[in-house]
């Protein structure tokens, strides 16, 4: 089967973001950018399915500025076959992303779309579900295990109470949770090889889709800061503070 893996370029998870002084967003200039960690898990899972003989071709898709090519190259260096960048300078929200992906799914006809359950920048956790709805496909969100059996996908999901297992028809949209796998490190020779892999660039405007933002960002602010408290030296002092000062026990 063919697998489509949508990935997003985000501020690296180790960076502590700074809110811009004009409250329009967070500072992304001169900040380290990386592949969204959940998408990295999606790329890894696709490659493992290819190594196991389940998948034939892995196509990576990203939507955004031209620097997203670097993120796609990282996925190609991990082992994916080719990439597509839908290029735009605009901020593209999840519903528009899902519409673009639907367009590409109809063109590429994958049996499976795997992507991260959420991007660590806007923390929306929406794109996979929106895409599944637009396509009328099954959805396996927050996946921690995938097994293919008789034209269906047996999928284990991380839910609030523990784990849930569902059987999904194919084609399907899967979103990854943390315990699905541990992504591999990219080896240097593979980075060289990835430079030769096919990467098509499609201007977003050429698709003729409605990608306007429906959610207006009015402002972005710093969260209320929590002050560090005091250090206590003994268990007795801690219990005394909790009982008599904080009054929580």
């Amino acid at each position: 089967m063919k697998i489509l893996v949508p990935i997003k370029r985000v501020v690296d998870y180790n960076v502590k973001v700074r809110v811009k002084s004009d409250q329009t967003g967070v500072e992304t200039a001169n900040v380290k950018m990386s592949m969204n960690p959940f998408d990295e898990i999606a790329v890894e899972e696709a490659i493992r399915l290819q190594e196991a003989g389940t998948a034939e071709e892995i196509v990576i898709v990203s939507i955004g500025i031209k620097q997203c090519q670097e993120t796609i190259r990282t996925a190609l260096a991990m082992g994916a076959d080719r990439g597509i960048l839908v290029e735009t300078e605009e901020e593209v929200q999840p519903l528009a992303v899902a519409k673009i992906l639907k367009h590409l799914v109809e063109k590429e006809s994958p049996q499976l779309v795997i992507t991260g359950k959420q991007a660590i920048d806007d923390d929306n956790n929406q794109t996979g579900q929106l895409l599944a709805a637009l396509l009328g496909w099954s959805q396996g969100t927050f996946a921690s295990k995938l097994e293919f059996t008789d034209d269906r996908l047996k999928l284990t999901r991380e839910v609030d109470g523990g784990l849930e297992t569902v059987s999904l028809s194919l084609p399907s949209v899967v979103t990854t949770d943390l315990r699905l796998n541990e992504p591999r490190f990219v080896k240097l020779p593979n980075i060289m090889k990835a430079k030769k892999k096919q990467l098509d660039i499609i201007p977003m405007d050429s698709l003729g889709l409605d990608t306007t933002s429906r959610v207006k960002i009015l402002k972005v602010e710093d969260p209320p800061q929590r002050e560090a408290g005091i250090k206590v030296d003994s268990v007795e002092e801690l219990i005394d503070k909790l009982k008599n000062e904080a009054k929580v026990i």
Binding site: A133, T141, R157, D160
Partner: peptide, 23 residues
């Protein structure tokens, strides 16, 4: 915004062509 709400509501939004707002 539980695992259930996060799973279901964006799908509803997709069916209705609405941009959902999370959490």
């Amino acid at each position: 915004a539980t695992s259930q709400g996060k799973n279901v509501l964006p799908r509803v939004a997709g069916l209705l062509d609405v941009a959902p707002i999370s959490d």
